[in-house]
Design a protein around this nucleic acid. Structure first.
Lengths: 348, 348
DNA sequence: TCCGTCCGTGAGAGCGCTCTCTTGACATGG
DNA sequence: CCATGTCAAGAGAGCGCTCTCACGGACGGA
C-alpha cells in the first residue's frame, strides 16, 4: 500500500486454509467449485470464507491462469461525431448484464485518435484481456485484422464489410424494413417510396433491400424513382423527400431508413401541404425517442439493442472458451411499433 | 493457456534482462523510469524492450504493488429508466480520455438491481480497483458510504445530498439558470415564468435558485405564481405551462429547467395560440439535440459534459495518490447558447 | 488376506513482477 | 593511506494464487 491507506478484503487463501484447518489447495478447490472435495470439508471451508469475507485476488489468479477474466469493449467513434441516440448506453447495458452474470469485468476503451487506437491494439494484443467487442469502427479500420492475427477473440456489432471472417452480432435490418413496408402495403398504401440511408453501409443497403423485398412479395414492381438517398441525415432526408414529391406526386407512403430521416420527411411533407397520415403514411427505423415526439408519432422498427449487447458478450465468452476461433454470427429480429404516422387508410 | 491458443507479448522481464545482459531489477528500473540507471544501460535495455515487444504483465505487477491501475465507473441507473440523452456516452468519453492518457484502465459497472449493486460494492471493496467514479445514484443509495468507510477513493458527479463528505464534480446549475434568465431580462422580457424540475433533486433546486437570482439581481420581485413544477417530464411541463398561462396570461417568457420540458412548453404555448418567440420567449437547459429540432430552435444552457468526465477522472486519480482522503469538489461553468426561441423583443 | 485402484487431500513449485538489501566500484576527506 | 560516502547494479524474497504430483486411506476383487 503505497498510500498508507489499508484495504479490507485482505484475507488470503492461506488465511482461510489455516482457519479451516486445511491446505491452500483445498480452499482453492472449494472456491473454484471443483467436484473433488468432500461435502463436509466444502461446507466448513465455505463457512470460513464467508466469515473472513474472503475474495480471491484476481491479480494472483490471473498470473497463473493467464486469464484476466476481463473483456474489452472498444468504441471507436469517428472523430468528433456526436452521440445522438442512446445506442451505446443500451448496448453497454446489455453487455454489462451478461458479463456481470458471468463474473467478468468490462473494460471500456474509447480511442479518439489513430494513435489511441494503436495503443488500444497494443493493449489488447498484450493479453491483458481475454477478448474484445468492437463497436462502430470505420470500414477500413485495421484493428479487427490485427487482433485476429494475434489470435485475440473478437466479436463485432453490425455486419462487417467484405465478408471478413469474424464473429458478429447484428439486427435483421432487411427483415425489419421488409415488415415495415409490408405493413404499409397491408394498410392499403399504393405508392410507397423510400428514403434510403448511406449506401456504403450495411444497414443502408439492407434496409433498402427489405423495402424491395416487401414490394416484390406483394407482386409490385421496383420503381427507382421511388428511391431517394437521404444519407442518414436530416438534411439529406429533407432534400430527398422534396425530390420524391416532385418526381412522384402520387406518393402516399414513405419508408425512411432511420427515425431522424423519417422526422425530417414528415416535416417536409407537412411543409408541402400533405397531411400525415391521411395523405401520406410515414414509417421510420430505430424507434428512438424522436419517434414519439413528432406529431403524429412515428411508426418505427424497434431494434433489440440490449439484447444485441447481451448476445455480443455471450458470443465472445464462447469464443474465449473455444479451442479454435470459429467465426459465428447472430442476427436478431426487430419489432414493428405501429403508431399514428401510418394509421388509417388513404383517402380514395 | 487453457485453450491451446498462444498469445504474443510473451516476453518477460527475465527474457529482456537476459537479452540485455543485465538483471531483472535493472530492467524493471528502466521500465518504471527510475532515475537510478546509467544512461548507457538505459538505452541498451530500452532497445531490447523495443525489439522483443516487451509489455509488463499487469497482473504480476499488481500482485506486488497492490495497485491495479484501474478505476471503476459505476452507473447505477434506476431500474428500467431509459437513457434519453447522450449524457453517459459523453461523460464516459471524458473519463476515458483522461484515464487513457494516464495509462489507467476504465472498468465499467452497470448494476441493474440492488443485488447487482451489492456485488459491485463487494468488488470495489475487495481492492480490485484503485478508486471509483459514481454516477447517477439515487439519493439514499448506501454505496458511497460503504465505499467511503472502506477507504476506497470515490468521486461522484452531481452535488451529493445532505452535505456528505465526498469529492464530486458538478455543473454550475445555479449560475447557468441565472444567465439564461438574465438573458431574457436583457432582451426586454417583462413577465418571466419558470417551469422547475423535481425539487427533490439538486439540479431542480439549483436551477430554480438561479432563476430567482436573476430576477432579484434585476430588482424584480419573486412571484410564486410564476413558478410551476414540471417534474423534469414532458407531461409535467405541458401541464405546468397550461397552468402558468391560466394564472398569469401576461407571461412573455419561460425558463424551463430542461430542454425536454422547454420543448413541451413550446408545444403547449403554440397550442394556446401564442407565437414563439414573438409573444413568448422560451429557454431550456442541457442543450440536447432536441433543442435544435424544435421550431423555433431552443435557446439553452450547455453543460460541459466531457469536461465533467475529465475532471472526475482527474480528481479521482489525485485522490488515489493522496495520503489522505480529503473531499474535493469542482464546479464547472455552463454556456448559454442563444437560438431563435428567445430572439427578438416582445410585441408592445 | 493381499494387492490394485480410486479419490480426497496436502506439499511445493512457480507464474512475472517489485523492492529491499547487499555488493562493489569509485570518489572524497582526514 | 584508510575510513567513509555515493551510487549503479544484482541477488533474492515474496506477492496470492493454481496446478501437478505424491500420498495415504478406503474399498473391491481374487
Amino acid at each position: 500500500m503505497t498510500n498508507g491507506r489499508s484495504r479490507t478484503g485482505t484475507a488470503t487463501l492461506e488465511a482461510v486454509a489455516r482457519a479451516a484447518g486445511v491446505s491452500r489447495a483445498t480452499v482453492s478447490r472449494v472456491v473454484n467449485e471443483s467436484p473433488r472435495v468432500s461435502p463436509e470439508i466444502r461446507m466448513a471451508v465455505q463457512a470460513v470464507v464467508e466469515e473472513l469475507g474472503y475474495v480471491p485476488n484476481r491479480a494472483a489468479r490471473s498470473l497463473v491462469t493467464h486469464r484476466s477474466d476481463s473483456l474489452a469493449v472498444v468504441i471507436a467513434q469517428p472523430a468528433g461525431q456526436v452521440f445522438t441516440d442512446p445506442f451505446f448506453p443500451r448496448l453497454l447495458r446489455g453487455i454489462s448484464s451478461t458479463l456481470a452474470a458471468r463474473d467478468r469485468q468490462l473494460i471500456l476503451m474509447m480511442p479518439e485518435s489513430a494513435k489511441d487506437e494503436q495503443r488500444v491494439g497494443d493493449y489488447l494484443i498484450a493479453g491483458h484481456v481475454d477478448g474484445a467487442m468492437l463497436v462502430s469502427l470505420h470500414e477500413d479500420d485495421p484493428l479487427p485484422a490485427r487482433l485476429a492475427s494475434a489470435r485475440v477473440p473478437i466479436v463485432m456489432v453490425g455486419r462487417p464489410p467484405r465478408g471478413s471472417r469474424v464473429s458478429y452480432v447484428d439486427v435483421d435490418n432487411r427483415q425489419g424494413a421488409q415488415s415495415a413496408v409490408a405493413h404499409l402495403i397491408e394498410s392499403g398504401r399504393g405508392v410507397i417510396a423510400t428514403i434510403t440511408g448511406r449506401l456504403d453501409t450495411a444497414p443502408g443497403l439492407d434496409r433498402r433491400a427489405g423495402y424491395r423485398d416487401a414490394l416484390l412479395d406483394a407482386g409490385r414492381p421496383i420503381d427507382p424513382t421511388l428511391e431517394a438517398n437521404g444519407e442518414f441525415t436530416r438534411d439529406g432526408a429533407t432534400a430527398a423527400m422534396a425530390h420524391l414529391l416532385e418526381v412522384n406526386p402520387a406518393i402516399d407512403a414513405v419508408f425512411a431508413a432511420s427515425d431522424q430521416m423519417a422526422a425530417a420527411a414528415l416535416a417536409a411533407l407537412v411543409a408541402a401541404g400533405r397531411r400525415v397520415p391521411t395523405d401520406v403514411a410515414v414509417v421510420g427505423f430505430d424507434d428512438l425517442e424522436i419517434a414519439t415526439t413528432t406529431t403524429p408519432q412515428l411508426t418505427s422498427v424497434r431494434q433489440p439493442i440490449e439484447e444485441l449487447g447481451r448476445e455480443m458478450a455471450r458470443l465472445l465468452l464462447e469464443g474465449v472458451d473455444a479451442a479454435e476461433l470459429v467465426p459465428r454470427r447472430v442476427i436478431l429480429a426487430t419489432e414493428l411499433v405501429v403508431r399514428d404516422s401510418s394509421a388509417g387508410v388513404p383517402a380514395p
